[in-house]
Design a binder for these strands. Structure first.
Lengths: 339, 339
DNA sequence: TTTCTTTGTGCAATCGATTGCAAAATTATT
DNA sequence: AATAATTTTGCAATCGATTGCACAAAGAAA
């Protein structure tokens, strides 16, 4: 086995009979170094297979060129596409992306955030868990002036940048579409109120009902964890009502899908017996039968913007940049399940 | 704005009027430190809000506790679930996961690998791009004795650990199922031969034909990039043959889905006019109509095992561990598209 | 009491790159 | 040729934690 000792700037310096500082400057294109030496050094560096020790540089500069990402689950399309957007942008700026998942558990989230903090990421992009009802772990970052950016699911008590979609309006529009379609008894399977996104969707739903002068019926609102099972149960409860709904706005595509399954099993025609809509436009939504009406969230774009914003903030450390809430547009997608 | 200077072991040492080395040892539970001082130090550390500087420690120890992951695309379910598995295991061992995507481009892959190398990850887990026909960039790792582990799509010329599934057998089994079902003219939409997984699937297909004494027809084999568009075109070509196939084994679920779409548009009944099967069991495959027969690859498990294996190797640096190819089982899932 | 162990701490070098300040080398000016 | 101005380069400290070696303190044995 060949030996491959790491080359340092000192080795280069020694070879070239100049000082390490000059080597360092030459490699960093510092203007105080003459063209001649710069070339000499850079040539030698390549020749000797030098690779800079990022760790040492980071230690000195107190920057890691790394951003941490915490999402509930990596394997959900919305999040993986957001990560894809983050990674794509970060990559162009030479930033690394460390990911971790909270599994929608507060404790795990706290742990992830702590770990990223200890690893001294330059910034953190996060979409909070369904359980997150405290913000102590985020304050770590604000206190040390490390940028934190929430996307989609944000923590309302932390002042920070946010990339969101207009859940209220999206909820409103998709409910409106059900009304327009002729639905009279419209139910909603909502997510936990803890998360503003679900509250907003619900409020959009209420607003649409209100505008159409459809009285709100308590029994038509199911609050769940929006999992497949919970969705199925909630939908079953709705359909078991003496006066079951003829339109259901499901809080996400997963529950809409489970509702669809329920309908198939119980011989209910969608959309004729009951119209269904989801939220998020998962990859399966377009291809399931009947295809699922939903609201498309620009996951990739959100991630991309998030990375752009946070890296900009990181790079302008020192400058005061006011916090911003960037609202990206959603697209209402009407498919067979409600048309 | 409050100032929050970072506390170092020196600050602790100064406060406690002991040396930094003692503090360091106390914090690391070194046996040479007495219970008394250890407690004292640890108490003080918490009190002063000390957080170790991972960078400094890493610089010293030449370890980053980080593993790099390169996948073609993060937002594909198979890969995001693999990453999920990697992250879950890595997390339990205190390892960070840096991700990057090659977008199935060789150049980008080389770049990602280089970057991870420069960032001194302790190991790398990778599933190579569709274009990867060279291995120079991987040799970097072997040369410096940094563990590299391939999963699913591996580079055959690099000696290393691998986590794969038995593509040959899976291809065989799913083709066999088509034969068993009564299909006589079975086509295959294959992926690039460059990737062994596609070659294996194809060979499995050939083997099944051979065993059933069905002669292989050149025109029934389409080699494509397995994208939606290419899949659609390939399928169209197949169906335009004078003697179109009555069963098609598609190289992945995406092409199978596009084939399904084609059938819907052209009024072909699946599986009666033509039976279809995919590969991978994407989330949409179960819910599309007709539901798609496919081979389930244990993405999460593969990722989990990959992380386990590579971290084990990292932690036993110095010890010689023979390379291993771990083959995880697939599950044949027969659904409506071929039943 | 003296000598030998055992246990606990501290000194100082190290990991590799960066940077303020000073010194040297080069060029411009008189 | 001498001095001033400018450009290049080097010295040495720094970032924060780790660790081999030496030394000090405490206890055990003679």
């Amino acid at each position: 086995m060949k030996k491959h000792p790491e080359i340092t700037i000192h080795n280069l310096a020694h070879e070239l009979k100049i000082s390490a500082s000059t080597v360092s400057r030459a490699l960093n294109d510092n203007s105080r170094i003459s063209e001649k030496t710069r070339h000499l050094v850079q040539k030698k560096a390549i020749e000797m297979g030098y690779r800079p020790n990022v760790l040492a540089a980071n230690l000195r500069s107190k920057k890691t060129n790394t951003i941490g990402v915490v999402v509930p689950r990596i394997d959900r399309y919305f999040f993986s596409s957001a990560i894809s957007g983050i990674e794509d942008y970060a990559w162009t700026k030479g930033f690394n992306v460390i990911i971790s998942q909270s599994n929608d558990l507060l404790l795990k989230e706290i742990n992830c955030v702590q770990t990223l903090f200890n690893n001294r990421v330059d910034g953190i992009i996060i979409s909070i868990s369904m359980q997150t009802n405290e913000d102590k772990h985020f304050r770590l970052f604000s206190e040390k002036n490390i940028p934190i950016l929430f996307f989609d699911r944000f923590c309302p008590t932390i002042e920070s940048d946010r990339i969101v979609v207009d859940d209220f309006n999206s909820g409103y529009k998709i409910t409106y579409q059900l009304i327009e379609r002729g639905c009279k008894r419209i139910a909603h399977i909502a997510g936990p109120e803890l998360l503003n996104i679900y509250k907003d969707r619900k409020n959009g739903y209420l607003r649409a009902l209100n505008e159409a002068k459809i009285p709100f019926t308590e029994a038509y609102l199911e609050v769940t964890g929006l999992t497949k099972d919970e969705g199925m149960q909630a939908f079953a409860r709705l359909m078991a009502l003496p006066n079951p709904p003829d339109g259901v706005f499901c809080g996400n595509d997963t529950t809409a899908l489970s509702a669809l399954e329920y309908c198939q099993k119980n011989n209910l025609k969608v959309p004729n017996d009951v119209a269904l809509t989801g939220f998020s436009d998962e990859p399966f939504s377009a291809v399931v039968t009947p295809s699922l009406s939903t609201v498309k969230q620009p996951g990739y774009q959100m991630g991309f913007q998030a990375a752009k914003r946070i890296i900009h903030r990181i790079e302008s450390a020192g400058t005061i940049i006011p916090f911003e809430q960037i609202v990206l547009p959603t697209t209402l997608i009407i498919r067979d399940s409600s048309s």
